[in-house]
Nucleic acid binder design. Structure first.
Length: 573
DNA sequence: GCCGTTTTCGGCCCGACTGTTTTCAGTCG
């Protein structure tokens, strides 16, 4: 289901592709791309903002013209300019730009010289060796295009952060064994803790005679050397993930780390600031003319343009630069702020460990409390609990709490929200719990109106406390179900309910934009791992990363509270 | 198409690597 914003962003981005192909003004192209990004990443619906008469041109990168175009799309579903451009330039051409090594210029040449419009056309031309004769193309380029077509067919999705970490760790260890190497850091979206990464950007500082670049190329997991230079090389690993290695002298470490951490949009914005101060920022430092004025640390780089250090998770050019300039950066929540986990499972349902094992593991993490929230009966595949079994678990928790010292197990349940919005366990047993975690586990395909009404009705139950994984998405696997989160968040706020930020790296649900919206609304979130085993409790750090990307501070998070403060917050009136 | 402590025009980040060229355009990040 395309939400309004996603649809608008899609149209802008298609328009940008086509204008680029036509050789249009690159800055105009960028303007549409920026707008697509702003709208697509915005947590509030453009339609709703328009309804409330809000001025869209106050959004970053949206001026009078684009605000008008957004209105056109909201009101008619169409962008006339896009329709017009699509009539003169085949839409399929933008698909061709997704092939590595093919940009707008080459795609245009292929179209004009050989009439190539589709992947199939291109495949045929490559097989017939027609491409190599074109000016600017040669046999090697033709070869690369052939490989690019094959790779595109394998449609490489972005890699989940947890998977990227597993791939990066042994590679970093391998690089650290090179001679003359000092720092090895994974930068890029990995360092910004994005939920998925497109590739790995690894930064190394090394002495001039270091063998790190040769060693990188020899890495056992490497499948192909994409490019190789003195300061920069790129590998494709067997996993399909691409890795960029950049080597700089130690004096440039901060500037390089800053540069390769991105995001691109953030970097561009800060470089503009630098320009105004007659400075130039590149990966080797900050320069005034030929003189290096900063670069050893990131903090120095920021200071050179008059800013305090901005944490990597915020570097998306989504207002962090302005906030930093005004001394309004948030003090982001940290893993150490977390005092407990509010959503986990045991072997009573689909978890792997017992109550006591889960409790001990949480204690080992330094937690003060852990909520046991096994599934309710409707989730039969997980052997969900009925009233009787839940009451038995409640008694078992009471007994165990008698034995635990300085640590408390909280009584909870992950209660299914049924299709009609009722809860899957009777109030008589829900009232015996410390709180509930409620969730949608089936009927994902209801209309936006009905899905929203379903959850709103569930919240009317006085025993509803926290809405678990609020959109139900599984990254790269299942799209979020269609629900009006703005309305849900407002309602939760009014009723003393809360939403969960599910920290599981397959879910990361809420996303960063919605976390930020929750903060704006003053709605607190629970960051919970949904652990199904003792080791899963350590997934908390992914949730923290997401929370930080969403500008959340410790105060925004339920489980940074002491047990008493938490219980007070969870009490509904 | 956006944007403004060098404001309503004239800018718009910056560098590395590849392949096809013979000095550089195209692509990428």
């Amino acid at each position: 289901m395309a939400g309004h914003n996603r649809d608008i962003a899609e149209q802008f981005s298609r328009l940008a592709d086509l204008l680029e192909l036509e050789g249009g003004n690159p800055f105009r192209v960028r303007a549409y791309r920026n707008a697509a990004r702003t709208v697509g990443g915005h947590s509030r619906d453009m339609a709703e903002m328009l309804e409330q008469d809000e001025d869209l041109s106050r959004l970053p990168g949206i001026g009078k013209d684009l605000a008008g175009k957004i209105r056109q799309i909201v009101e008619t579903g169409h962008l006339p300019l896009l329709d017009k451009v699509e009539q003169r330039t085949p839409v399929a051409l933008s698909q061709l730009m997704r092939i590595e090594g093919l940009g707008p210029k080459r795609v245009k040449t292929l179209y004009e010289a050989l009439g190539i419009q589709s992947l199939d056309d291109l495949k045929q031309a490559v097989d017939a060796q027609q491409v190599r004769g074109l000016s600017g193309f040669g046999a090697r380029t033709e070869d690369k295009i052939r490989q690019g077509i094959e790779r595109l067919a394998g449609s490489a999705a972005r890699t989940k952060l947890i998977h990227a970490e597993q791939i990066a760790a042994p590679l970093v260890a391998w690089l650290k064994e090179s001679t003359g190497v000092k720092d090895v850091e994974v930068a890029g979206s990995f360092r910004r803790r994005k939920e998925t990464v497109g590739d790995l950007d690894i930064l190394v500082t090394a002495s001039r005679n270091s063998d790190v670049m040769q060693r990188f190329i020899r890495y056992g997991e490497a499948e192909e050397t994409v490019s190789q230079g003195k300061t920069r090389s790129t590998l494709r690993l067997r996993s399909g993930l691409q890795v960029d290695l950049r080597v700089v002298p130690q004096v440039a470490f901060g500037a390089a780390l800053y540069y390769f951490t991105g995001s691109k949009e953030h970097n561009i914005a800060v470089r503009k600031l630098a320009q105004k101060k007659k400075l130039k920022i590149n990966e080797y430092g900050v320069f005034r003319g030929d003189e290096r004025v900063a670069g050893r640390t990131e903090k120095e780089v920021f200071a050179s343009v008059g800013l305090p250090f901005i944490p990597p998770e915020l570097r998306e050019n989504q207002g962090e630069i302005e906030a930093a300039a005004n001394g309004k950066l948030p003090e982001l929540v940290e893993l150490d702020d977390i005092r407990g986990d509010l959503h986990c499972h045991t072997n009573a349902t689909d978890g792997h460990h017992s109550l006591e094992q889960m409790a001990r593991a949480a204690q080992d993490l330094g937690y003060e409390y852990l909520a046991i929230s096994d599934h309710s009966r409707h989730v039969s595949v997980a052997h969900g609990l009925d009233s009787k079994r839940l009451e038995a678990q409640i008694a078992a928790i009471d007994r165990l709490n008698g034995k635990l010292d300085g640590f408390v197990l909280l009584k909870s349940a992950e209660v299914d929200i049924l299709e009609d919005g009722s809860l899957d366990l009777p109030d008589a047993v829900l009232k015996q719990l410390d709180f509930t975690v409620c969730a949608v586990h089936y009927k994902f395909d209801l209309s936006r109106e009905r899905q929203t009404a379903r959850v709103l009705r569930a919240m009317d139950n006085p025993y509803f406390n926290i809405l678990a994984h609020p959109t139900g998405r599984l990254i790269n696997e299942r799209a979020p179900y269609d629900i009006d989160l703005e309305q849900i968040m407002q309602a939760a706020s009014e009723r003393g309910c809360f939403l969960e930020l599910n920290a599981h790296p397959e879910r990361m649900d809420l996303d960063d934009a919605h976390c930020r919206r929750a903060h704006e609304l003053g709605l607190k979130l629970a960051i919970s791992t949904d652990a199904h085993s003792t080791s899963d409790l350590e997934l908390m750090r992914y949730g923290i990363g997401q929370a930080r990307r969403g500008w959340l501070q410790a105060d925004d998070v339920l489980n940074t509270r002491s047990l008493n403060a938490l219980k007070k917050l969870l009490r509904r009136n």
